[in-house]
């Protein structure tokens, strides 16, 4: 969404050890540049979720450094974290929509949360809902929308505040193949505007067809990081 504005995430020797002793990540080094499309693959419990949570500062590294645009997230004061998060949009497998709000309200909610003036909210929400192809469904409640439509609302919400970076945690995990592809085309479209996309997935077909950068994590370690890579696992 900001062509030319670079937004880089770097990790240097990052470890994540949970209080119960589980070593989710063990010495991860990675750099993701502005405009990239990256798949994170690996078996369940390999550390993909921890990897992703470190990127939007839901978790702090136990050891090592996570740099978001050169800023060490561990050192960022608590009150500044929201400003870091405004540069990042997050999409989940279960959509996380507010059930008592319409599609329009769900998207507008994200703009209200960052204190956008009211007059700017309506045109922008309509714009992104059009982008995700839901102009005609904007007054429907989530329960009246299909899974694919719900995920598109969630994507609209993730991009409405113009983030430089989208993190998607298994965004197609709950969708049938057709809807999954719709979502992928949409993410690809968003990526073309210059927004970085990092997507954790178990969908072999998608990864193998799209041929983007693939980072494979196993037992907390990056075992593969290749451009135009393949899924590399049997389901």
């Amino acid at each position: 969404m900001f062509p030319g504005v670079s937004f880089v995430i770097e990790m240097h020797d990052v470890w994540k050890v949970y209080p119960n002793g589980v070593e989710a990540l063990r010495g991860v080094d990675v750099r993701i540049d502005q405009g990239e499309f990256v798949y994170i693959v690996g078996p369940s419990g390999a550390g993909k979720s921890s990897f992703i949570k470190l990127m939007y500062r839901e978790e702090k590294p136990t050891h090592g450094i996570v740099l978001i645009n050169g800023v060490n997230v561990k050192r960022v004061r608590d009150w500044k974290i929201p400003h870091v998060r405004r540069k990042i949009g997050v999409v989940f497998q279960d959509f996380k929509l507010l059930p008592n709000m319409t599609a329009y309200e769900n998207v507008a909610f994200a703009m209200e949360a960052v204190e956008t003036p009211k007059r700017k909210i309506k045109p922008r929400v309509q714009e992104v809902l059009e982008l995700v192809g839901l102009s005609d469904r904007m007054h429907a409640l989530p329960s009246q929308l299909s899974g694919g439509e719900q995920q598109r609302v969630a994507i609209a919400r993730a991009i409405v505040n113009n983030p430089s970076f989208i993190i998607a945690d298994e965004p197609t995990g709950n969708l049938d193949p057709e809807n999954s592809w719709d979502i992928m085309y949409l993410l690809e479209e968003i990526n073309k505007f210059g927004t970085t996309i990092v997507m954790a997935t178990h969908n072999k077909e998608i990864v193998n067809t799209m041929r983007q950068r693939v980072i494979a994590i196993e037992q907390g370690v990056i075992v593969r990081d290749e451009l135009g890579g393949e899924y590399g696992y049997e389901d």
């Binding site: 929201p82 400003h83 949360a113 505040n161």
Partner: peptide, 9 residues
């Protein structure tokens, strides 16, 4: 969701 989209504390 407010936290995720960067609402201030």
């Amino acid at each position: 969701i407010q936290r995720l989209v960067g609402a201030s504390n």
